[in-house]
Nucleic acid binder design. Structure first.
Lengths: 281, 281
DNA sequence: ATCGCCGATACCCGACAGGTATCGTCGCAG
DNA sequence: CTGCGACGATACCTGTCGGGTATCGGCGAT
């Protein structure tokens, strides 16, 4: 019997529906069903009555619901007490300005939830510094994208996304299902400001130097796509930039990694890494 | 943060020594160290000060010790409440008379601990019924050895032990490191009473019928070794039968499985299986 | 200076928690 | 009564993680 299992149980007991509970828990239904069965085996008792007309609680299930809620809130209190005893502290997180990833808000919520007394400062940075100020000590931990020069930094890869080109919706290439670099060879790309990390710069310009406007932020990049014949590149997530744009996968670009980076392995930095891994699982 | 991790933490905090805590938890030291580090990362705080002169608690660790103890006792209470709501019930466990396995007492302790309100009945059975009365409904679940006729039964294998021959300490073969069936060909073996499960009988007589005394229990078998030139077979565990005997591995006998068997998959039977698997891990 | 204790590290492996695809069953509508 | 949709269960695959053994490194004691 673990706390995770009890959280699963509470979700099912509140929804009285395995599918909805699974959605709420950001997981699929079969492992949830299995976990509940295991909990039943663990406690030696049936907790739910599964019938075609729905799911309901047995007496033991009702008792468990009350007890599990108490236990889980006490577990939350435990976190708070330990954090208080550790002395309140603060953590500065750098994120890239382009991060429109919906998971980020989930991560922020989860981290504040697990570490309520830690003062979290968010620092958004321009596109020219993928380390978000890690080296200059401006931030303790960065949630960003690779690749960049990682000497002296710890880096953990969370996920990789394929990369696509951002085009105006009326661009002749916008209807294509996929693109290659050759299709984009005659377009102007954007440039990074001087001083930008070379690995990063080379990655987003696909290896060669392209004459185009200098951009510092995603918005500038998009504007540049709208007003010039400029190419924008963006990771392909399920987030869409807007109806006036089309995003088409570029098949011969390597995928772009989402990473957590930090320079000092303090417990707080590691705790951020930990919840990030849990969210991006 | 899971309950298991907190139990680990409490053990280390009480012993202030990773090695001793690991022993107490029936595990080895490295995974314990790792689990504590993960807990520290999870909470975002250092919990122990590791120095060559010993391990001590940080303020956060001290706070966690108190809180974790409370949480764990409440978790135990939760089990009890759910069991009470489920209505008290009873479970009859059959074990083979020969089970001198030290894990069995640990299993019994763990099961009573996890299911305090379940009335557990133990029924020891003779060597002639490896199912311990499962088929006749005398027991709900059996902790026994294979192989036996398993039609209509659910069987889960916990472990397999190699098999050895029990000899008098002054037997000429007693000094050997290993034996083969050929070495034992001229000895008399024991016989099982009529009605014994055929698979079981064939296994412990290594396939052929051997003329020898009929035995019903391990003690009879050992007496027979002492007083006749009879061969006894026994699984090789770290338990020793006594100084007047020698146990020598027989290399050409298949190993003997320790199993849990049950006929009705009731929650209580499954709960017994679950704790057995946890103990015999 | 060396030895020994003890926690950390490195590495391996089996178990398990997660996923997708599909099934079985029951209620309901036509 | 038959087809269909909803929903939990089952089957199966895969990556992660919790367990193990072997070994290292650092500090204290003799």
């Amino acid at each position: 019997m673990e706390l995770r299992t009890l959280r699963y149980f509470v979700a099912v007991a509140e929804e009285l529906h395995f599918g909805r509970a699974a959605t709420r828990l950001y997981m699929s239904q079969p492992p949830l069903s299995r976990a509940i069965r295991q909990l039943e085996a663990d406690l030696g008792t049936t907790l739910f009555v599964r019938s075609a007309s729905g799911v309901s609680l047995t007496p033991a299930g009702t008792a468990l619901l009350a007890e599990a809620r108490k236990l889980l809130t006490q577990a939350d209190r435990l976190r708070a007490r330990v954090a208080a005893a550790a002395g309140d502290t603060s953590l500065t997180v750098g994120i890239l300005g382009d991060s429109t990833d919906p998971d980020i808000s989930r991560l922020a919520a989860a981290y504040r939830d697990r570490h309520p007394t830690v003062e979290v400062h968010i620092r958004e940075t321009d596109l020219d510094d993928p380390t978000c100020g890690l080296r200059t000590g401006l931030v303790d931990v960065a949630l960003t994208r690779g690749p960049f020069n990682r000497t002296g930094l710890h880096v953990h890869e969370l996920r990789t996304d394929p990369v696509g080109a951002v085009l105006r919706a009326d661009d002749p290439l916008a209807a294509r299902k996929t693109l290659t670099l050759a299709d984009l060879a005659d377009r102007r790309w954007f440039q990074f400001p001087p001083g930008t990390d070379p690995e990063w710069q080379s990655y987003w310009n696909a290896g060669t130097h392209r004459g185009g406007p200098v951009v510092r932020a995603v918005q500038e990049c998009l504007q540049s796509v709208l007003w010039n014949a400029t190419i924008g590149l963006t990771p392909l997530t399920d987030h869409n930039p807007g109806p006036e744009f089309a995003v088409v996968p570029v098949v011969d670009l390597p995928p772009s990694p989402v990473v957590v980076a930090w320079s000092e392995s303090t417990p707080l930095a590691l705790s951020f890494l930990r919840t990030a891994r849990a969210i991006y699982r």
